[in-house]
Write a protein that binds this DNA or RNA. Structure first.
Lengths: 212, 212
DNA sequence: TAGTCATCGTTAATGGATTAACGTTAATAA
DNA sequence: TTATTAACGTTAATCCATTAACGATGACTA
């Protein structure tokens, strides 16, 4: 199996989403142009992406076998194995993310949340127990958590990241508007929502047409 | 002025963020490698990006004049002119975004929010009045709103987008996990948070090292 | 005032990702 | 059975973004 670039992986997840709905609808086959429309890319892109799975083939005038491709995608994404995550910072955004992962996504689970506010400690939000941030390293290391989600204010983000790294996480997703420093070997995704919104505002002003 | 690619624009905003802090700290000059470290890119990338502003120059062993570059960036990003936005869906995520924009970002303002829940109508969250979604088109058109932020459940997202487009917005940012269809001329940004988290989980599992 | 050195600006090279083109294949129907 | 055709798989071409390389410049030091 070749190493898959980041963008392609992101599309894989979107294909999965759509294929899942197709399975539920009872469809056996799906065309590249259907998938393309569903995730907002070109049919050529879909076919090119699917080339990564040489084992499974589509057939002309029928399309791709939904179940086989789902299986191949899942296998590659290793979505079947459970990945443990924690969330640091139980504000509005943190709560939103906690509720998203409640019940949905069986393969991903937020096993604990942390907050500095003692008011929130030992409470349960969306099925997830909140601990005081002082407990972070202990809990993360004990539970062998792989991913940390940072939803604290900018001033506290680097500190949270450092603690997560010390406790051994392999990936961090940061919603705070600061660029974090993490050692090589830890995958970092910066997701500054206000920045994204500013970008959209910019292109809206400029009337640039483009989609993603 | 050349047309700037999307990625570069995103970096512009990050440069702005950092330069702002530099101004406040009273620095007159800044090096490319400082900026690079601050936003997580290479110094070469910074210099290349800054080539877009031919008028303003840096000097060896001193760096770039902070204020001049701030001014040039602001001028190009047109951040000075106020852009009106609305938010559809006042759940946890919606509230988080509303509070982010309260007071910060003078150039961007969420002028109204909408929700189907009559309980929330006519209340005020984070300084923003909430209307019933039925009012959306009327308010957006009257206020000449340029950007819509969609934070409703997936099932309601397309409907919200259609209403926004009819009312004349030029940009939409969608947090719901569905691919929206919008006409050409409307800039669309899909921002599926759970998808991003799944991506991080994937690379954490694979131990791929990469940063953004 | 001359030399050194750090840093800039630019051009060129590389690499990745998307788009286009085109031959191939199998389902359908005459 | 054969023709037709819609959709696939692949290769090639294009486009865009990043990285590298390198000469130019001006601040600093002796």
């Amino acid at each position: 199996m070749p190493r898959i670039p980041q963008r392609t992986v992101a599309r894989f997840f979107r294909y999965c989403q759509f294929l899942h709905s197709k399975v539920e609808a009872g469809s056996e086959f799906v065309f590249s142009h259907e998938l393309a429309a569903a995730v907002g890319v070109s049919p050529e892109q879909v076919r090119r992406d699917f080339m990564n799975f040489r084992q499974v083939k589509g057939t002309p005038q029928r399309g791709y076998p939904v179940k086989e491709f789902m299986a191949a995608l899942y296998a590659h994404l290793e979505s079947s194995s459970l990945t443990k995550m924690v969330l640091v910072g139980v504000g509005n955004l943190g709560k939103a993310i906690l509720s998203y992962f409640l019940r949905r996504r069986p393969n991903l689970s937020i096993v604990a949340a942390f907050d500095l506010d003692p008011e929130k400690s030992d409470r349960i939000y969306s099925g997830c127990r909140v601990h005081h941030t002082g407990q972070l390293e202990k809990v993360v290391a004990r539970e062998k958590v792989a991913v940390g989600i940072i939803t604290v204010p900018a001033s506290a983000a680097q500190e949270a990241a450092d603690a997560l790294v010390r406790a051994g996480v392999k990936g961090i997703i940061n919603f705070a508007p600061v660029q974090l420093k993490v050692p090589r070997g830890v995958f970092l995704e910066q997701l500054d929502i206000t920045l994204s919104i500013e970008k959209v505002a910019y292109f809206a002003r400029k009337n640039r047409i483009k989609e993603q």
